[in-house]
Design a protein around this nucleic acid. Structure first.
Length: 479
DNA sequence: TTAGGTTTCG
């Protein structure tokens, strides 16, 4: 049986291996030595597609990380598997699982590696007497002829002050700063996240993915994240994290006492009591060590010349020109200043016209620029957003004697400037929805008549449309 | 590859 799936019980994995096998350290591997009765154990951090060599031999390559020495400079190694074993392994293995190989050959590479991996690789095949043991999760019986029960792999989490250049690690952190996912200048979405932990070390991570959904779902400073398989590099004298193959994340609300429910796009993830405890401990630490009082504001609290984060509902949107896009939003409160209206062609405006008119004194126009345009175009009317670092600017048009407040989301991502879509399950969204449903639109009309400075009125006879508006509003708010 | 935190052309 070349590839065996083993059942492991907590830490006692060795007892299930043949007794003649001795463990070898990754750091001590040398070309030319006899490893017939030695084994290397590690976590699978990367695997490549199964291929065939020119002579028809199956070939499968994986990267193994030494889970006992996560902090050492060189802690991973390429494992090249040939023949039947390659085929078997390709069917069975998953990232994060523990992999043991015995009876391998060590081959030194001609040039030094620069990616933190060992300068040798392991060659493994049935013909040379190799044996492979995989600790797999229960249920993954795909290609196994043997019993295949086991516990989930045990992950090791590195505190932020123990990170070393060139390693791939798992870690927890509290979000101190973040840029919501935005389109990078390359091919992927990018999110920048700065974490801290009780060691008081900061780590800025550059996360990239072609799939928006696989980046962490961070909504506010103070959220807690768990990253798996993040690569650590030194940049400008500081450690930096960057996504590597197999990167996965969980995000938790950072509020003490809130349910510990991970936000993730992974179909499968491990999350046990121990991890729940870690999240709860980090919440308590963060409560007294992180300032989460962000620049959030309601529209009723905005002032000219201010940057703030707005949680709101999208009511309408419109193309303006190639480099800017209009979002019409509300949060149920009224801005104390007259606000600008961005002129757009009626045909370019998407959104329920009746509702837009009904809410016209509560809706504000936010003009987003450059890199935010593409994301803004994709937003669905009715969805809930958090727009980060909106700039309010006071400006008066030549033909008006009153100055109006303009809302801009400038280009770029400084200070986390960007747009995030919040799910309906988000506590802030639930609160906002309840508030929006309670807004008395009769009052809104009254406010209009009382507010002499507000000159926006396309047509004033609202009573004529009253019931129609009310019913439409009820329908929209239902969704 | 991309970004690498530290606000604004509009």
């Amino acid at each position: 049986m070349p590839v065996q799936l083993l059942k492991i019980i907590k830490e006692q994995s060795e007892t299930l291996l043949p007794s003649h096998l001795q463990k070898e350290n990754l750091q001590d591997l040398q070309e030319g030595c006899d490893y017939t009765n030695r084994y290397i154990q590690g976590i699978i951090t990367l695997s490549y597609p199964l291929t065939k060599l020119r002579d028809g031999t199956d070939f499968f390559k994986i990267v193994l990380q030494d889970s006992d020495n996560l902090c050492s400079q060189i802690n991973s190694i390429n494992v090249l598997i040939y023949g039947k074993m390659a085929e078997d392994c390709a069917k069975i293995i998953r990232h994060g699982e523990t992999f043991i190989v015995a009876g391998f050959k060590v081959v030194k590479l001609p040039t030094a590696r620069e990616d933190g991996r060992h300068d040798c690789h392991l060659e493994v095949s049935e013909e040379t007497g190799s044996a492979i043991y995989i600790y797999t999760k229960s249920g993954t019986t795909a290609a196994s002829e043997t019993a295949s029960l086991s516990v989930a792999p045990k992950y090791v989490y590195t505190p932020l002050h123990h990170l070393k250049d060139g390693t791939i690690v798992n870690l927890y952190g509290v979000v101190k700063f973040f840029k919501p996912p935005h389109i990078s200048k390359g091919t992927d979405y990018c999110s920048v996240v700065t974490l801290v932990d009780p060691s008081n070390v900061k780590l800025t991570c550059n996360l990239f993915s072609g799939n928006l959904d696989s980046l962490p779902k961070i909504y506010k400073v103070g959220d807690i994240v768990r990253f798996h398989r993040i690569k650590i590099r030194e940049y400008n004298g500081q450690m930096q994290g960057i996504t590597s193959g197999g990167f996965a994340s969980l995000t938790f609300d950072g509020t003490v006492g809130a349910p510990v429910v991970p936000r993730t796009s992974s179909r499968e993830y491990t999350f046990m009591d121990e991890e729940q405890k870690t999240v709860e401990e980090l919440r308590i630490w963060a409560a007294s060590n992180i300032s989460i009082s962000g620049p959030a504001a309601k529209l009723s609290g905005v002032q000219p010349m201010l940057f703030f984060d707005l949680t709101c509902q999208l009511i309408g949107k419109a193309k303006v020109d190639g480099s800017s896009f209009l979002l019409k939003v509300w949060d149920g409160t009224k801005c104390p200043y007259p606000t600008w209206k961005v002129p757009v062609e009626a045909k370019d405006l998407e959104g329920e016209k009746v509702l837009l008119h009904q809410l016209r004194n509560l809706v504000v126009d936010i003009l987003v620029y450059d890199n935010h345009v593409q994301l803004a175009e994709s937003l669905k009317v009715g969805s809930f957003l958090r727009i980060y670092s909106i700039h309010t600017k006071q400006a008066s048009a030549d033909n008006e004697d009153v100055s109006r407040i303009e809302f801009h989301l400038h280009g770029g991502t400084c200070y986390g400037r960007g747009i995030g879509v919040l799910p309906e399950s988000n506590p802030d969204v639930k609160e906002l929805k309840a508030f929006l449903e309670s807004v008395d639109l009769t009052d809104s009309q009254n406010m209009e008549s009382m507010c002499s400075m507000d000159v926006d009125s396309t047509f004033d006879n609202v009573t004529e449309y009253g019931w129609c508006f009310f019913i439409s509003l009820c329908i929209v708010l239902q969704y």
